[in-house]
Design a protein around this nucleic acid. Structure first.
Lengths: 210, 210, 210, 210
DNA sequence: CATGAATGAGCCTTCATTCAT
DNA sequence: CATGAATGAAGGCTCATTCAT
């Protein structure tokens, strides 16, 4: 019975301390998953990492699924926020497109564990629905973001005409694909070089030919 | 206790029937993983899929790890083989580079389940060593393959000078990144369009400017 | 993953209730082993005997090995404690030696199940190391105890000169060997008679000849 | 259906080759059990030791139980045969009693593996019936043998009057108990010294006082 | 006679979850 | 808010045994 004592059903806004606990647990979950893999990250281990009892997690989250869901949300939103701030600071579409890529790589470098965890988690969706939901939450917004930049560029005439959706998918794909190789072996790829190369390719792909 | 009584340790070449069983089990494992996720693919479920007893898997494989390892090998080698055949049939570096991309996408389309399974599996490496090993088995050979094509192109003067390793990583990354989006939601991206766009970008990125 | 969430790794002294559970489980394990043999004493059966879920054992013990180890410790220490108390109450070496034997047999009679279980367990050490460890834990202390009594007797001149280590091994061996026959068939030997005979033999073997 | 093709139900006396196989398997079982413990001695392992297929054992023995039963029989009969030959060669009761002990220890030293295996197996009888059967097969004959020697000695007046059954149990017990310590740790006891001490004790216990 | 193949029962263990305190 | 205790479901694995060849 969900009562006043169950934080998961409270009408009141969550206590400050409650929010803090949730964030603390989510953060520890990310660390644990990045360090040992999702399969090895039992609630007990995550709780250990925080130094709390296993039951505390059950108290603050409806279950493991909810915790992982919040981990994903945290992973994605943090990244999106940073990238958006890079893009917003750029003056024009050309710069914004460049900023999108730069922001993406910059965030990667600063938060390696996030991506190691993400790669582990994103493979764990058993059902088609879960996969679809992840696409809707993770990829669709990213592609839309890139598309909006591309549209502006086409509107201003900086970019030539091309299918925005397709190019968005390829750009985002290249970023993710390079990230993936870097997750598996940090020294396998040089992120800075790849970023520069990708920017160069994208620049050529979008510019108007004279 | 690998011995005469253990089919997994035979010195001589495996029986025909045994090889068939192993392939059958691996194939079923791929289907199951693609359909329900690695975490839900217990040996019992995989065995059910084949219509055999759970023990049969234990009889032919040392354990789940060995089975999954063989699944990975199967997934990667089949893909590499097909791509290689596309590349080998192409007459010159420019065509080969194009063929690498075309072959990659063609294989994807023909074997969606393989990639759905692969994305699930590749996130399941808990340790740094396992991740590193996957990189060595999966990515390094691909990048090397692309690099060798690029080198030939530079040697013949068809391609301009650029860092081959970096470009290889970006090309392979773009292929994988697009594939990833398609794995999560089949209709989110149009593989044919993405392939064409990627080929166009790569063509521009490699060609000599006059 | 021994941690805060694992009762088996607590830094502080174990809860009263926890200690009680452990003792209860150990006691049940002894009963089960004595009744059905070690090989038939699965955790499930032992748990049934206590009337608890199988998982409770896993919760309180790291595994079956730890449980069996504690069973052994319990078996040996209880016996040693009782024998020691008999010996300590005896006034002189001659009486002490007699008390050692009497205490041993008295404890046997009172705790038949312990010895039935012990005989089953002591054969279960597969490796040389495990056997050696059992010797160190079970036999060496007993022989040492007897040796110390013998030494005192020699010091006081009550006993003649002989090799203490050898006689200790033979005395302990005779006690165990008679116990063994009694474990296999309770009515095959009369413990009281055997005890008397053994005491008589030992008395003759140690006494000074005039 | 037990037919002519089933060696376990054949009326004809077993083939020579069949007997050889059985003995070979039994011998390997002893080695395996002595080396790794009964629990680790699966039919597969034993078969490996012989270099045959697991099914061969099933073919020659009704099951694992029958194999172990034959192992026990082999272990006991071999020992008894040797001891008997020592005793038979001795001229009088005093010498025979001494020979019984000497033969026992001599056989131990020559066949350590047999006893390591025996100690492992004798603990594996789960039911009271099995224990009782082992007593009847293993101990009762030994005690009877000693008793018969003792009786002869009393008849001839070499030995004083005492309860033969009790002394038999103690003598056999001492032999087994020393053996037990030696099984767990070969260097814990000196068999020769123990044998000498035991002979001395038994001599004193039986001789007529003047 | 021998063997490869298959099977099902049972075992130990892990883990998310529930509940009383 | 937090925790210790308990639970049941599920998983991977071992093994004696059966059967067709």
């Amino acid at each position: 019975m969900r009562s006043k004592n169950d934080p998961r059903s409270r009408r009141r806004s969550p206590t400050f301390i409650e929010e803090a606990r949730r964030r603390q647990i989510v953060a520890s979950a990310i660390t644990t998953i990045a360090g040992s893999g999702l399969a090895q990250s039992s609630l007990a281990r995550i709780a250990d990492e925080v130094g709390i009892s296993k039951s505390v997690i059950s108290y603050h989250f409806a279950g493991k699924d909810e915790l992982i869901a919040e981990v994903i949300t945290s992973l994605l939103s943090e990244s999106n926020r940073v990238i958006k701030s890079w893009v917003d600071r750029a003056p024009d579409p050309t710069a914004k497109l460049r900023a999108y890529i730069e922001g993406s790589f910059a965030f990667m470098i600063e938060h390696r564990a996030n991506f190691v965890a993400l790669v582990d988690i994103w493979g764990s969706f058993g059902t088609v629905e879960a996969k679809r939901a992840f696409n809707a939450a993770a990829y669709e917004p990213c592609r839309r973001h890139i598309e909006s930049i591309l549209r502006k560029g086409q509107d201003t005439g900086e970019f030539r005409q091309f299918d925005r959706r397709t190019l968005s998918a390829v750009i985002q794909g290249a970023i993710d694909g390079v990230m993936l190789q870097w997750v598996f072996e940090e020294r396998a790829v040089d992120l800075a070089d790849c970023m520069a190369e990708l920017i160069s390719m994208v620049t050529m792909a979008t510019r108007t030919f004279e």
